[in-house]
Write a protein that binds this DNA or RNA. Structure first.
Lengths: 335, 335
DNA sequence: GTTAGCACTTGGGCATGTTGAGTGCTAAGT
DNA sequence: ACTTAGCACTCAACATGCCCAAGTGCTAAC
């Protein structure tokens, strides 16, 4: 049995199964694809594929369906990225229009991606390593509570309420604000941890502890605004694509609700800046996603975009969409 | 047949059905509830209830289930709000702890509510009518793009990118910022539409048009920060509560994804500041929610909290939870 | 107005039969 | 050494028929 044909058979099985949602048998296979051999030969090949754990039969006398391992091989070695349709290109292009508000763009991106792929789309807020501090604001909410606001020149705004140990005066805040602002304006976010301590050190002793608290607040903002948030869209696709198909969507919804889980998931994925990464079924670190796959890639300076869907998914098309969207995102937000 | 007993029967049917998820028959009814009459009598009563459209039989020889109208009557006239359990009270109390960040509080509230009710919880961002302007910031992102930030003394931060028609200088922005800030600091958000025009009018003529654009931005922030956003949690409960129960969750997920739909839904609901409002099944203005009910109430100065779940839901408990959570929310955020 | 009794309906469970897609194997063909 | 035709076998899915329990509606008596 020839190695190339074996792969061809696997490809055919994956494609047919993704398309029909039904186990595919040897006879149907030779009919739909013009492999130059008979169904008996295919049966032999399939037996081998099954031995290798690439396909499996749900029950004795049904066709075969790909295993996680089968999909893996398919994705790694067989599939070719499909070009996008003209309409799809147009849709992505239209992302370039409209206001360049980061939130807005991400919002629209994630919707578009979910529509293109018919899956749940997920996008991580862009890293703002290179962003510069544009403004700092301290707002006294209650005697001991201060709202810390950190604005970057990219337009991203981070905010956090912190608890000062003791009563805080407005004057003190004003003073500290101008101190901080004077020292860190136009500084890279990534450098804050190095710069902030010296600012604190230069403050009058009686304000030192407050300044310390505020500095911590600012620093955590520079951290969290980098990675913390995630946006998603297309949850309804989970239900739709699984009409009469029992991917139990409960666990998946749970995973999607836990931003922590999703963040972990995305950042665990490889970081090949060129290609997209695929995590299939049980390869996922989270149990609830044992029947799901994640297709993701990085954009900009390292944040991730991707989709989540059933293992039985049209990988070539999906990968193409994710890749295209990521590229445009990089272009718009400026790597 | 006595009117009180008829209601009693309806109540029993609703309660049993909610509990067992199965149509309830006359015999089971007399066994579980000690109504002082025989099953034959109940049958007569049930026939009447069915005529009145309050209950229906899925097939000829099955028990009855409540109709939307039946639930309506139940909610309006029969049910008594159940007191919360001690554990539930404790959980709600613990909301009082931790930092009083608005986002944080709402986030935790909505999670808590979804856990208490086992439904999807939804909360609208609080109205900030009475909030005072604390700070205004303009950030130049690109030659023609300005980020407008509006900070309220409540700690809520609104932001928006606006498109100035022509190139903008940093100096101009600085000047306008101090003008605006001087005029509207400590002004009520609700008053902005009246105050802003006069600020614009006092600007130097060459900056007038930019000032006008910025003023519009500020105003829309004061509007949108009031109503626009919605937070939700517990989507996974949709799948869980419908294991082996075919509320098609697809349409519901769609509705939940459309913030517009949800906002409309919430604001269409009555505004009784004391009690909770319930919208049952087809009473909902959105078709996808024909098999769902919404239980909501106002909090603070008019925003809404509530839950969404299947029509077959434990209304008394749910209503109690929603009401209790709304009260605490009002207390924390200061009506 | 209530109740007991009874005939009637019907979905669900179960055992049984049938069908068809699909397999694995063997033996023959290239 | 592959490939192929043929064939016996397996098994989910569907269908059929049967029975049962739950439930109803009605009537006649209390």
């Amino acid at each position: 049995m020839s190695e190339p044909r074996k792969l061809e058979v696997l490809r055919a099985i994956v494609e047919d199964y993704v398309h029909s949602r039904e186990p595919v048998g040897s006879k149907a296979l030779v009919e739909r694809h013009h492999l130059g051999v008979s169904s008996a030969t295919i049966r032999n090949d399939m037996a081998v594929l099954e031995e290798e754990g690439l396909i499996a039969a749900p029950h004795t006398s049904a066709g075969r369906i790909p295993t996680d391992k089968g999909y893996r091989l398919f994705v790694d070695r067989i599939s070719q990225v499909k070009p996008l349709s003209a309409a799809e290109r147009r849709a992505i292009h239209s992302l370039l229009e409209g206001p360049d508000d980061v939130d807005d763009i991400l919002e629209r991106t994630v919707r578009l991606l979910s529509q293109l792929t018919n899956q749940v789309a997920v996008v991580q807020y862009p890293h703002s390593n290179r962003a510069l501090v544009r403004h700092v604001e301290f707002v006294l909410l209650a005697p001991k509570q201060v709202l810390v606001v950190l604005i970057a020149d990219t337009g991203s705004v981070g905010q956090k309420v912190i608890d000062a140990g003791s009563d805080v005066s407005n004057e003190a805040l004003m003073l500290l604000r101008s101190r901080f602002l004077g020292s860190i304006a136009a500084t890279q976010m990534a450098l804050l941890p190095q710069v902030l301590p010296s600012v604190v050190a230069l403050c009058p002793p009686e304000l030192r502890s407050l300044a310390q608290t505020l500095a911590q607040g600012l620093q955590s903002l520079s951290d969290t605004s980098r990675e913390e948030r995630i946006l998603m869209a297309g949850t309804a696709n989970l239900a739709r694509s699984n009409v009469d198909f029992p991917l139990s969507i409960g666990p998946v919804l749970e995973a999607l609700e836990e931003q922590v889980v999703m963040l972990r998931l995305l950042s665990d994925m490889g970081d090949d800046p060129r290609g997209v990464t695929v995590s299939i079924g049980r390869e996922n670190p989270y149990d609830g996603l044992a029947e799901a796959s994640v297709v993701a890639t990085g954009y900009g300076s390292g944040a991730k975009v991707g989709i989540l869907g059933p293992t039985r998914m049209d990988y070539p098309t999906t990968m193409a969409a994710v890749r295209a969207v990521a590229r445009y995102l990089s272009r718009i937000l400026g790597g």
